[in-house]
């Protein structure tokens, strides 16, 4: 396409955007809503992945001690475990310390423990794993080895939770792409219908352009550019909406008990995801236009 033709496309786009501002705004708004839903899934997925990484970094094994072990046996066992190549350090939690930690964890509700003996909780080792060994199967194999050690009644590690959360993230990813597929098909048809209306509104103009020998790409280009602009603006609005949504969650929602502890740690989607949303919006707008145009041009061309 030559420069003069590009200028012509630019002028036609500006003129169409001015003439049908509300129609364009409606399409951009619809796309913003759909992309917001998609972005919300991305936001959830990225934050869960961050959580997984954080948990992975803090990975530790809790090994509970037999009640009958004396101090010398505990020290010997601790020394043995410390010498395993996977272990970074071992911390001994006595029964009294475990009781105190539990009281602190319960906070205001610690009075429910009144009347219970202070040695009700078992002593344990908190075993911290070296970074090089913080991998699911390695930790699992090590935990199984520990289970065979005499003096340990049970061995627990959070990898099981990490595995479950990983599954959850995977399910969320699938749900996101399936939902995205359904939403995008819906938006595609909305965009296509709107473009069809725009084409009908400009039918005379298209016919005149065809009459004077305008190449097909020159006739189609303004519609495709309009679709891209609509999609890009819709995607931009959805990213903005997500940012406000996250701010609302951080500022207005009180600390939640559960998975996240506090929503203060929630992070906004990264630049790659923002670029993905913007690209998807533009592509969706452009493809809706192309499909509508192909059909109409075929009908009209003499």
């Amino acid at each position: 396409m030559k420069i003069s033709q590009l200028g012509l496309v630019g002028r036609r786009v500006c003129s169409s955007l001015r003439a049908r501002l509300w129609t364009h705004a409606l399409v951009a708004g619809t796309m913003a809503i759909v992309l917001f839903v998609f972005g919300a899934f991305l936001l959830a997925q990225e934050n869960l992945q961050n959580l997984l990484k954080k948990w992975g970094d803090q990975i530790q094994i809790n090994a509970y001690l037999d009640k009958d072990l004396d101090a010398a046996e505990v020290s010997l066992l601790r020394h043995k475990i410390q010498n395993f190549s996977e272990v970074e350090r071992v911390r001994h939690i006595s029964r009294q310390q475990a009781w105190k930690d539990f009281q602190v964890a319960l906070g205001a509700q610690s009075n429910v423990l009144e009347g219970l003996p202070e040695d009700v909780l078992p002593a344990s080792f908190e075993i911290f794993i070296k970074p090089a060994y913080r991998d699911g199967p390695i930790v699992e194999a090590f935990a199984n080895r520990l289970r065979k050690e005499k003096g340990l009644t049970s061995v627990e590690y959070p990898q099981e939770w990490v595995n479950r959360l990983s599954l959850m993230v995977l399910a969320l990813q699938w749900a996101m792409w399936v939902l995205a597929g359904i939403l995008f098909v819906a938006v595609f048809f909305i965009v296509r219908s709107t473009v069809r209306l725009a084409i009908l509104a400009q039918k005379d103009e298209i016919e005149v352009m065809q009459w004077i020998g305008a190449p097909e790409e020159l006739i189609q280009a303004p519609f495709v550019v309009e679709g891209m602009i609509q999609g890009f603006i819709g995607a931009g609005l959805s990213v903005l909406g997500l940012w406000f949504f996250l701010r609302f969650l951080r500022d207005q929602t009180p600390t939640l008990i559960g998975l996240f502890g506090s929503l203060d740690h929630l992070q906004f989607i990264d630049w790659g995801s923002i670029a993905l949303i913007l690209a998807m919006g533009s592509l969706l707008g452009a493809s809706g236009s192309v499909f509508s145009l192909r059909r109409f041009m075929r009908t009209w061309r003499g």
């Binding site: 005379d204 016919e207 020998g213 041009m297």
Partner: peptide, 22 residues
């Protein structure tokens, strides 16, 4: 369609319906 566009680019068409952009 490309061929038709090229054909019309080489033609001067003047019909009773003028086909202007109003």
């Amino acid at each position: 369609s490309r061929g038709i566009a090229r054909l019309r680019q080489q033609m001067g068409l003047l019909f009773q319906e003028f086909k202007f952009l109003p």
